[in-house]
Design a protein around this nucleic acid. Structure first.
Lengths: 265, 265
DNA sequence: CGTCGGGTTGAGGGTGATCAAAGTTTGTGG
DNA sequence: CCACAAACTTTGATCACCCTCAACCCGACG
């Protein structure tokens, strides 16, 4: 598991599908700015302040712990390339994955105001991450109102995704659960311009997916086969190919409202 | 269902158990201030600003919709007395309760920056709620840094509770799930000084609990009976009495870290 | 070439769902 | 204040979805 999957995805351009227009900013902050400006219109000074944020970039292997439950981190982590996930483990050793994170996410932004980690944060693939000190972040939120609100909103979207995840795990049958999961990741990957919703790489094993969906690995395998047989999707290695997106969406009972990607007003 | 359960709970004082010291503030804002000062130390000017927040107080019956999925509310709602819950319903009509809210909560605080409701917010019991316009809230967050951070933190704790809820629904067996649910509500009720963690009123039917736990009502009933038989708790009408708190906690695999009630530093 | 992690397949079992109906409260209207 | 209706709880029976266990396969990699 030493390949950085995210890096191998080209910034595909295909006609007829939504393309995200990146602001005129380069460097590692680009992903963060692109993300924040999706929902909030920042001023030039805001963007400059973000670019000036001191950041330590590191390359991590797959399955690396970025933060562990009980720790009190002094920085947040911007996922620049690669995938990560948050998880908790019960006393009987069952793991539950809480969320999947893609480039542009700040998966531990909550640690800015919640000082003790209540879950683990781990890379799924080899990843490039940028660490930003809490002090710097707190400073920017105090000086730049719009940045503060944009970051706050990011944590709120985070929570909205958790809510839908609860519904998925609590009330949908296995096949629908898997469909919803794949639809969500696709939608989010497309929103940041990484790939298309119906064709993307997902560096997770079936065991990981089981932990994300609250299922057993064996059953995940059977669900995938069923989806393959019915022509809804391919899912080999770590490549997801949705063959029948409408049917997937219907199976999934998917409504992207909860992702709050179209923040009108 | 016209009885306001919350109102019937006296501010019990029992020796040997933690008591929350309320700040010297009265009126409907008291609950909010008490809540915010649990985790953040606010300045006098902050508290004054909160007290001065224009608020429209309303009494609602049980099962009243405060906000519905798809709506774009222009205010947030402070729960002054009574219980509420947030929920989503799948296309096949299965309801999943996402969270339970008690006096002092602002269950739709996320609407301040996420303009469209992605779920429903409903009263569980007859309740008194205070509506605060988004404009007023936005103004206070721009003028009072500490208030902004305290409110942001509240939404982060909200998310932390969602995360644990995912674990509960995704990875714990039914009995453990119920135990965890009752432990959490107890802990939170105790934290705001409403009642004790082992003796409180919970205005939910077994059907509601089933929707909260991702179980069927029939199975919820059987789980409750099992917990009764084993002497862990009583649960009659809407009164929860934990008889063996340690055993409940162990059954629940409960660790209150995720509630972030002891915000050291 | 052997090991290891992950995917696949089969068999059997259990937790919890569904269906149905009978009790029991609760609430309402006469 | 009683009577009735509605909502909730309880019980029983049956069923299915999904879990567990176990074995085997496959490709990657040392």
């Amino acid at each position: 598991m030493s390949i950085n999957y995210a890096k191998t995805i080209p910034a595909v351009k295909r006609p007829g599908l939504p393309q995200v227009e990146a602001p005129a900013v380069s460097g590692v902050s680009e992903r963060l700015i692109r993300r924040l400006t999706v929902s909030t219109s920042l001023e030039a000074a805001d963007i400059e302040a973000i670019v000036r944020l001191p950041m330590i970039v590191k390359d991590l292997p797959a399955q690396a712990a970025i933060a562990r439950e009980g720790e009190k981190p002094a920085q947040c982590c911007l996922l620049i390339d690669g995938f990560a996930c948050r998880s908790k483990t019960t006393d009987v050793g069952k793991r539950q994955i809480l969320s999947i994170h893609i480039p542009g996410d700040v998966p531990d932004l909550q640690s800015l105001h919640l000082h003790t980690m209540d879950h683990d944060l781990t890379t799924l693939s080899a990843s490039r991450v940028g660490f930003i000190a809490h002090d710097s972040l707190r400073a920017i939120t105090r000086e730049r109102q719009l940045v503060a609100e944009a970051l706050w909103r990011e944590t709120l979207i985070d929570a909205a995704v958790f809510r839908e995840w609860i519904v998925n795990v609590g009330r949908r049958p296995a096949t629908s659960r898997m469909a919803h999961f794949l639809a969500e990741i696709g939608k989010r990957i497309e929103a940041v311009g990484l790939a298309h919703a119906d064709e993307y790489d997902l560096p997770m094993t079936q065991i990981d997916m089981a932990d994300a969906l609250g299922l057993s690995p064996v059953h995940v395998n059977r669900v995938i086969q069923e989806l393959r047989r019915s022509g809804v999707l391919e899912l080999r290695k770590h490549a997801v190919s949705i063959r029948d997106l409408p049917q997937l969406m219907q199976l999934a009972d998917f409504d992207d409202l909860y992702l709050h990607q179209n923040q009108a007003v």
